[in-house]
Amino acid sequence: MNIRVGNGYDVHKLAPGLELWLGGIKIEHEKGSVAHSDGDVLIHAICDAILGAAGLRDIGVHFPDTSPEFKGIDSKILLDRTVSLIAEKGYGIGNVDCVLCLQRPKIKNYIPQMIETLSKVMKVDASQVNVKATTTEKLGFVGREEGIEAYAVVILSK
């Protein structure tokens, strides 16, 4: 069995009056992600981790933010396409582990819905997806609520 590990990272600026999408679900908050797509940092980090593990570069190569095709796109579509890309190469997802870094809003009550949504899009069991969240104790751009970031690690097998 061929096992591959990939990691992903994404960051987006936050601004008032925009929607906040995390893990494929809309989160009620007064600020949202500034982005070409829907700005779902969690899904973008997962896509990068999956693509990296498969040796397929990164999300910007496959879904460039300069393309009108991806303007405002639902990031779940990008994740679905990413999973299809690795399936074509014979890979399947072993597990995904993620960390969301944001000062507010508190999202622990949203995490079960995120896991359910992500596992359905990736066509894996919910037990293969883990999402954690942390603040930065009011330090840095995340602590000042200027931005949000996400990290993801994935194991693929062939």
Rank of each mutant, 00 (worst) to 15 (best):
N2R: 11
N2V: 12
R4G: 01
N7D: 11
Y9Q: 10
Y9N: 07
D10R: 14
K13H: 07
L14H: 02
A15M: 07
A15D: 08
L18R: 13
L18D: 03
L18M: 03
L22H: 03
I27P: 13
E30L: 06
S33A: 14
S33V: 02
D38S: 12
G39V: 08
G39Y: 00
D40F: 02
V41E: 01
A49R: 03
A49W: 04
G55Y: 06
F63S: 04
F63L: 06
D65C: 13
T66G: 10
E69G: 03
I73F: 08
L78R: 09
L79C: 02
D80L: 13
T82L: 02
L85N: 00
I86V: 13
G90L: 02
Y91L: 02
G92N: 10
G94F: 06
N95I: 08
D97R: 15
D97F: 06
L100E: 10
L102N: 07
Q103G: 08
I107F: 02
K108G: 09
K108S: 13
K108D: 15
Y110S: 15
I111T: 13
S119K: 11
S119N: 05
V121H: 03
V121I: 13
K123T: 02
N130A: 14
V131F: 04
K132E: 12
A133N: 12
E137D: 10
G140Q: 05
F141Q: 14
E145L: 06
E149T: 13
A150H: 07
Y151E: 10
Y151N: 14
A152C: 01
V154C: 09
